[in-house]
């Protein structure tokens, strides 16, 4: 009987609550970027279907996790929904499912409600900015390049410094090697040429 509860919950909840195309529309209008469900969901085609990370493919323990996440109406509940990616789960933790459902009417307000310091992939771009711009909050290589550049530059300062130093020393060595070849060649040439 206990095993049937999550399944019943799954069947009774309206399917429209599973995916929110309003956010995709908002991102398209706001940034001109066409995004798919992989922004928040485990499967790029959304939660409905039979593929991995979709409702039809869920089994025992996954159904239980789904039911738990669907009960997380208020914020502050850590969930691990099998149909969501880490960012989707983080949204439920931070905002709760009711705020997410409400957010469909006003996506901008919902996105603004996310904390500024939330940056799951640690790429230096706050997740609320990534959401607004339609880049993946779970991939450190996804983001507007002008936002990625300053953060990655600071992060890689040591490597850049070492790269510059290595190139400089290699160049210095090569320059002197070539000049040494030239003087050696001239010297040999002078010795082998008959005296005038």
């Amino acid at each position: 009987m206990m095993r049937l509860i999550p399944l019943l919950a799954l069947l009774l909840l309206p399917a429209r609550l599973s995916a929110y195309p309003e956010f995709q529309q908002f991102i398209l209008t706001n940034s001109g970027t066409k995004v798919d469900c992989a922004l928040c969901h485990a499967n790029a085609d959304g939660p409905e279907g039979l593929k991995e990370g979709q409702l039809g493919a869920l089994k025992g323990e996954e159904l239980e996790r789904l039911a738990t996440s669907r009960r997380a109406i208020a914020p502050g509940q850590k969930v691990h929904s099998p149909i969501l990616n880490p960012f989707g789960n983080e949204l439920i933790l931070r905002l709760g499912r009711s705020a997410l459902a409400e957010g469909r009417k006003n996506p901008a307000a919902m996105i603004d409600a996310l904390p500024e310091d939330l940056d799951l992939d640690r790429d230096g771009i706050p997740d609320k900015t990534e959401l607004r711009e339609g880049t993946l909050p779970t991939d450190e290589e996804s983001g507007r390049f002008w936002r990625l550049f300053p953060h990655r530059f600071k992060q890689n300062l040591f490597h850049i410094g070492m790269g510059v130093l290595a190139t400089f020393f290699l160049l210095y060595g090569l320059e002197n090697l070539l000049k040494a070849f030239k003087s050696r060649y001239r010297l040999q040439h002078r010795r082998s040429s008959p005296p005038q």
Binding site: D36, A44, S142, F145, G163, T167
Partner: peptide, 22 residues
């Protein structure tokens, strides 16, 4: 050096929208 800095700081694929890279 310029190329090295660009390669470290700007992932080439950041120029594409992520759904295209699925």
């Amino acid at each position: 050096v310029v190329m090295f800095i660009i390669a470290l700081c700007i992932p080439f694929e950041s120029l594409f929208g992520y759904p295209l890279l699925a």
